[in-house]
């Protein structure tokens, strides 16, 4: 077991979920009819997609460097957050039964990865590329603002601050996931919760897509809700991070759906 094998495990599970999702939510007829147009659409939505790619690439480069910078210029707000909400996360944790925690552990890694990738597939299969562009743009806004906050604020999550009351449940239940999460983010980057903001983004976009994909809305909402809950129950995020995550998610959708960003070649 090493980082690569855990990453492969995640990739396999998410691919399976995507296959099931496409079959159940999109349906075979639509795939067949839309397949020839994919290349054109990717070209049409190239700008927001490339922008997202660039931000993700920058994210991975800046991450190590950003943590150091953050200690230099950022303010350590862990104790402020704790002063605001106290032992909320600990109480929430004590309510969750073991099976639910295990479920949330898998949702936190598999479910979240699926939740992020699937909307790109869904919107790619729509004739109107506007939704694809919106989704990519909304993700970009999340990452840019999130990264900025991570540099400006140093904050440790509940499991790191209050080991006396909050259990590091993700790593206690499924220790191998720590290999993946530590590759993806530093433990000082908890404010705001990007898991939350991106899940909220996906849920809000699912609402916009409800006419096209009526089955996606309930699935996305349930998954997003589970991810949001998991961040707290697993002891990773504070409720404060989650609140700001929800706000960030809503803001990103608001910005990404403004007509001014879709003025050119749109048909609707």
């Amino acid at each position: 077991m090493n980082v690569v094998s855990v990453f492969s495990e995640v990739a396999v599970v998410v691919s399976l979920l995507l296959a099931v999702g496409v079959a159940g939510i999109v349906g075979p007829d639509r795939i067949r009819s839309e397949l020839p147009a994919l290349r054109t659409r990717l070209r049409q939505a190239a700008r927001p997609l490339l922008l997202l790619g660039a931000v993700l690439a920058a994210n991975s480069v800046v991450r190590d460097f950003g943590v150091g910078l953050s200690w230099l210029i950022g303010s350590n707000i862990t104790k402020t957050i704790y002063a605001i909400e106290g032992s909320f996360v600990a109480s929430l944790q004590s309510l969750a039964p073991a099976w639910f925690t295990l479920y949330l552990g898998f949702v936190y890694v598999y479910g979240y990865a699926f939740l992020l990738v699937f909307p790109l597939v869904l919107t790619l299969l729509l004739a109107n590329t506007r939704y694809l562009k919106e989704t990519a743009f909304a993700y970009t806004v999340n990452y840019v603002i999130g990264l900025l906050c991570y540099v400006l604020f140093v904050a440790y999550g509940p499991r790191n601050f209050a080991p006396d009351t909050v259990e590091p449940l993700l790593y206690d239940t499924i220790p191998r996931f720590q290999l993946v999460t530590s590759q993806v983010n530093a433990n000082t980057n908890v404010f705001p919760s990007l898991h939350t903001s991106l899940s909220v983004t996906v849920a809000l976009m699912a609402y916009r897509l409800r006419a096209e994909y009526p089955r996606w809305l309930p699935v996305a909402t349930c998954l997003a809700g589970s991810v949001v809950l998991s961040t707290m129950v697993l002891g990773i995020h504070w409720a404060t991070d989650v609140v700001f995550g929800v706000l960030l998610g809503a803001l990103s959708v608001y910005v990404a759906t403004r007509p001014r960003f879709h003025s050119e070649n749109e048909s609707s």
């Binding site: 077991m1 090493n2 206690d172 220790p175 720590q178 530590s182």
Partner: peptide, 16 residues
């Protein structure tokens, strides 16, 4: 290096 002690123990247990 790994990020938490429970993961460290799991790696030793799995023989890695």
């Amino acid at each position: 290096f790994v990020g938490s002690d429970s993961t460290a123990v799991e790696l030793v247990e799995s023989g890695d």
